[in-house]
Amino acid sequence: MSRRLIPSSPATNWRACMLTLAGAWLIDAAGPVAAESTGHAEHPRSTEAGRTLLAQYQCGSCHTIPGVAGAQGIAAGTLEGFGRRSYIAGRLANIPDALAAWIVAPQSLVPGTAMPAMGVSQADAQLMAAYLMTLR
């Protein structure tokens, strides 16, 4: 991804960053995996694939994830209600593009975060993000 998702200087770049993410979200909203908050329905196969991938990548080893079998981890925060949250890791706007980028390379967005890179492809991350955004 060529866009920077967190600003280098909050005072000068925060607005530009949010506008970039908002623009990316508006583009994504027309697609089949747009969040319910846009008024577009989730594509059922996408969300089911996302649920399956969350189990496959063993995200439930650290997180509790409603609807994902065996995902009862307590090392990291629960993902219950994730689609209602405003921020990812307290820093990034909770929108599908940012969430997919976070899933792929969390350290590149928030250096020092405890979330590891799990080798998730961009395509898989988009499906995983689609499922997580349904958790309301």
Rank of each mutant, 00 (worst) to 15 (best):
Q58E: 15
A101I: 10
A24H: 14
C62P: 07
A93M: 15
R15M: 11
L54M: 04
G81T: 06
R3H: 14
G70V: 11
R84C: 10
A22R: 12
P116M: 08
R85K: 02
A89P: 13
V33W: 05
S46D: 02
G83N: 00
M18N: 14
A11D: 07
R85H: 08
S86T: 10
N94G: 05
E42V: 07
N13D: 15
L79I: 12
A30L: 12
A129F: 08
A114M: 03
I95C: 11
S9I: 14
A76F: 12
A69R: 14
R15F: 10
A89S: 09
L54V: 00
S121T: 13
A24K: 14
T20Q: 14
A105V: 04
A117W: 04
L5N: 03
P116R: 00
L54K: 03
H40A: 14
I88D: 00
W25E: 07
G23H: 12
Y131H: 11
S2I: 10
Y87L: 12
Q122C: 13
A16V: 08
H40F: 14
L54H: 01
T38N: 01
A129M: 00
C62Y: 07
A75E: 11
R85T: 04
L19T: 09
A69G: 07
W102N: 11
L19G: 07
C59I: 02
H63V: 00
I27W: 15
N13T: 12
R91N: 11
R4Y: 02
R3V: 13
F82D: 02
